[in-house]
Design a protein around this nucleic acid. Structure first.
Length: 194
DNA sequence: AAAGTCAAGTTGGGAT
DNA sequence: ATCCCAACTTGACTTT
C-alpha cells in the first residue's frame, strides 16, 4: 500500500530527471516507464497491446524487470474488481486499453487478486474457527467438571426392610404407582421358595 | 540480511 | 484443440 504511494511519487516526477544519472536513488529507476517513450497517463508496462500478448518480454532471455503498477492503475483495477471479480474478454480488453497494459497483465492481476482475496478469507475463517475451538474447549471442560460433581453427589438407593423378615427387600419388590408416582410394595409372590 | 509483497511463469484440470 | 482458472512457484523489489 505504501509502496503504491512511492510509485505514485515516482510517476508524478517530471520527466526531466536524467534516468541514467550516476547518483540516482533506487526509486528513481522507474521500470514502468517505456524505454524512451513520452510520459503518458499510465506507464506502459507492455510494449504494444495487440501484437505480442504471448510473453512479450523481448530481453535477451533474462526475466524482465518487475512491473509496479501506478496508484491510478491500482485504483482502477480495484474498482473493476469490486464490480466483478472475473472479467470477460471484452471487459479485459477495455480495461487493458484504459490502463495501457497488456490484456495478459490485467488477467494476471485479477488472478492474483482473487488469490489474495481467497487467502484473506481463509485466514479469517481460520481465526474464527480457532476462537470457536477455544470456546468449545472451555465449555467442554466446564461440562466435564459438572459431570464429575454430579457423580460425586450420587446417592445409594433406599434400603427398605421387610416388615416380616427384617431383611432388606429387593427393588423388584416395589412398583411405582402410575398415578401418584410413589413406590408401593408389589403383591407378594405366591410362595416364592421353600 | 531476512521477511514480506506482488507481477509473472508453470502446471494441471475442467469446460466448450 | 483451445481457453480459462486455480494453485503453486519464481524472482524482482521493498520494508523492517
Amino acid at each position: 500500500m505504501d509502496d503504491l504511494e512511492l510509485t505514485m511519487a515516482i510517476q508524478g516526477l517530471s520527466s526531466t530527471s536524467g534516468s541514467e544519472g550516476g547518483g540516482c536513488n533506487m526509486r528513481d529507476l522507474d521500470m514502468n516507464r517505456p524505454a524512451s517513450g513520452p510520459e503518458e497517463e499510465f506507464p506502459a508496462g507492455s510494449e504494444e497491446e495487440e501484437g505480442g500478448d504471448g510473453d512479450g518480454d523481448g530481453d535477451g532471455g533474462n526475466r524482465p524487470k518487475k512491473l509496479r503498477l501506478s496508484r491510478e492503475q491500482s485504483l482502477l483495477l480495484e474498482e473493476s474488481f469490486r464490480l466483478n471479480q472475473t472479467l470477460n474478454p471484452k471487459q479485459k480488453e477495455t480495461l487493458a486499453s484504459k490502463l495501457r497494459l497488456r490484456q495478459r497483465q490485467v488477467e494476471v492481476w485479477f488472478q492474483n487478486r482473487r488469490a489474495r482475496t481467497k487467502l484473506k478469507q481463509t485466514e479469517m475463517e481460520c481465526e474464527y474457527l480457532k476462537r470457536c475451538f477455544g470456546l468449545l474447549t472451555e465449555e467442554n471442560r466446564r461440562l466435564q467438571r459438572e459431570v464429575e460433581e454430579l457423580r460425586g453427589l450420587r446417592v445409594a438407593p433406599p434400603t427398605v426392610l421387610s416388615p416380616v423378615t427384617r431383611r432388606p427387600m429387593p427393588a423388584s419388590a416395589f412398583t411405582m404407582c402410575p398415578r401418584c408416582q410413589r413406590l408401593s410394595m408389589a403383591a407378594a409372590p405366591p410362595s416364592a421358595a421353600a
